[in-house]
Amino acid sequence: MNITTFIIVSVIKTALVLFVLLTAVAYTVWLERKVVGHMQNRWGPTRVGPFGLLQPAADGIKFLFKEDLTPPHVYKPLYIAAPMLAVIFAVTSIAVIPFGNWFSVGNFRTPFQITDVNIGLLVVLGITSLGVYGVALSGWSSNSKYSLLGGLRASAQMVSYEIALGLSLVGVLILAGTFSLRGIVEAQAGHFWGFIPNWFIFRGGQFVAFFIYLTAAYAETNRIPFDLPEAETELVAGYHTEYSAMKFAMFFMAEYANMITVACLASLLFLGGWSGPLFGPSWLQQLLPLLWFFLRVFGFLFVYIWVRGTLPRFRYDQLMAFGWKFLLPLAIANLVVTALVVVLKP
């Protein structure tokens, strides 16, 4: 493949992935409204299209036509840059996520992934942790008290839980021995005891790591029960109080895109990625891994919504104590035990 073809293929793949991601974001919002609605004995969106399925499109158009307010008291460059940063970092980390195995038509062969970087996990962690800039800058540049408090809370919370999140993955790295996300999935192939899949969640006490990762990820994405940054009863809307129209929607897009990245990463690191039964003709065998992967991601997104419909919000001191005094020592203990087991096991 020469460089021109390579670039064209990359652009096509990227455009496709961005399109799918944004559609997924829109329909995750729909799913959330629908599921939470049913959990609260309501119907959720029903008016636009069958089962309200066109609601995301209607919302998108409405966001475009709403008044795009830029109040005079804000610091304009950062006020405009903040939602853009949030969206850019949220959708960029998907670039190194593998969605499935290889795809080949005739001579042409490409992985279901934009790029297989050999430090894939580090790239995801690095880019998602840049997302805190969008939140912190929007809170500061809005020059409003609620925004400032929300931005401060959000940045403190996100950096606190990032430590537990980062340390919880060390156990997986010890077992897999690679940063490449594709390599981590390949390390989970096969079964033990004849029937249990070799997923990391079942191995070497990584269930604890899975719990820490999921909890910390909920806090990273500012979701209930950790949605302190936008606690509407105290802070109106937190860091995006002063935003309207599409800029407001962009923070939402970033939040849901981050949720999807977390769901992808959890499936890849703990649940064996795209592994699943393969059967049928060769084209079906190529596409089935995508289906198994998307089913796992959907499962995680559903749990996100389920948790939102079930749990109340933490208090701020409880939130900080939980992150620093419980999850952090637990993550360190987990990695110490995993290292001991790996080295001492004959």
């Binding site: 992935v17 969206v87 850019i88 934009i114 790029t115």
Partner: peptide
């Protein structure tokens, strides 16, 4: 080969935003 697509993705995401 591994990082050029990442840059392209980053630029497209910027254009989208």
């Amino acid at each position: 080969r591994s990082y050029l697509p990442l840059l392209i993705h980053f630029l497209l995401a910027g254009a989208l935003a």
